[in-house]
């Protein structure tokens, strides 16, 4: 799959402060999450990819277009939902979305049609003739989403899309993002400090800390692996039990006298584990699927600050 974003030694500085510090790697997922605490550089990375900030060193490519030399091509492909309140005063939602679609290159009539569709799609159909100033925060977020998708972008940047939303509005926004990801022929980059938002919508996660990539996780892969990872506690010491599990094709390690960690082998299932235990006269006291949640991954990344196991730029081209 062609990489959506390739980072090639990207460095961004504001004065003497280094905001993004030599980012390298390649992202090709359909939904990419940018995670990190406040001030980690998530929004700066998005803004640099949009061409708002000029890289101090290195570069990045979006869908194969270099941000230094082909930013107009990049902008032709993208839709952007900014984090802050952004709108044009004195306009109704329909005028606003139409205007934005026209600026993205749609002819006036197509822009109007798409503006109606986008506003109905995000759930503002009945309120589309109201002035944006009269909208609630949640409605403004939806209007921002509508303007980002009205022109049919290939890549959608969503900067903190659930900011300031109450739980039902947040759920609605997450549902919309998932729906866009599933139905549209587009990639999306979601930037958030809310782990649940990213976990519920993204396949790939890039965790940033102090301007550096501290972890890259393919959530789909992790989810598949996690389904095979178990922790078992037995009533007796488990040496022979572990041997039996290894014969079954499982990777197995003792995590204490009566505790085992194992990764199920191909074709092995949980009932096989119970069968081996019964055969060796071992009682299983507890069996957990040890699932590393995104929260675990995030916390580990924050503690370790380890160098990222991220695919190098240019690999997937």
């Amino acid at each position: 799959m062609q990489p959506v974003i390739e980072l090639d030694g990207l460095e961004v500085r504001f004065g003497n402060r280094t905001i993004l510090d030599h980012l390298d790697g390649s992202l090709s997922g359909r939904a990419i999450g940018l995670l990190g605490p406040n001030g980690a550089g998530k929004s700066t990375l998005i803004n640099t990819l949009l061409g708002f900030y000029r890289p101090w060193r290195g570069t990045a490519r979006v869908a194969g277009h270099d941000i230094r030399t082909g930013i107009r091509n990049v902008r032709n492909l993208i839709g952007y939902m900014p984090e802050n309140d952004s709108f044009i005063a004195g306009m109704s939602a329909i005028e606003f979305v139409r205007y934005m679609a026209e600026l993205a290159g749609l002819p006036a009539s197509a822009a109007l049609e798409r503006a109606h569709e986008a506003l109905f799609y995000v759930g503002l159909g009945e309120a589309r003739y109201r002035k944006l100033e009269e909208y609630s925060l949640g409605m403004k977020q939806l209007a921002k989403l509508a303007q980002a998708i009205a022109h049919g972008p290939r890549l959608l940047f969503l900067d903190e899309p659930t900011n300031g939303l109450d739980p039902p509005a947040r759920q609605r926004m997450i549902r919309l993002i998932r729906d866009i990801r599933e139905k549209g022929d587009l990639h999306l980059v979601l930037c958030s400090h809310l782990l649940r938002d990213v976990e519920e919508t993204c396949e790939e996660v890039l965790i940033l800390k102090q301007g550096r990539i501290v972890h890259y996780a393919n959530l789909e892969q992790e989810r598949r692996l996690n389904r095979k990872f178990m922790e078992i506690e037995t009533d007796v010491e488990g040496d022979s039990f572990a041997e039996g599990l290894r014969e079954l094709g499982c990777e197995c390690a003792l995590a204490g006298a009566r505790r085992l960690k194992l990764v199920l082998g191909d074709g092995a299932e949980v009932r096989d584990v119970y069968r081996v235990a019964a055969g060796r006269g071992v009682n299983i006291r507890r069996l957990n699927y040890r699932r590393d949640s995104l929260e675990d991954i995030f916390l580990k990344a924050m503690e370790n600050g380890a160098p990222p196991p991220l695919p190098p730029a240019g690999n997937g081209a």
Partner: peptide
Amino acid sequence: NNALPLYLCRPF
């Protein structure tokens, strides 16, 4: 109203 990012994120 912070509208400039909306203009400038387009091919503009």
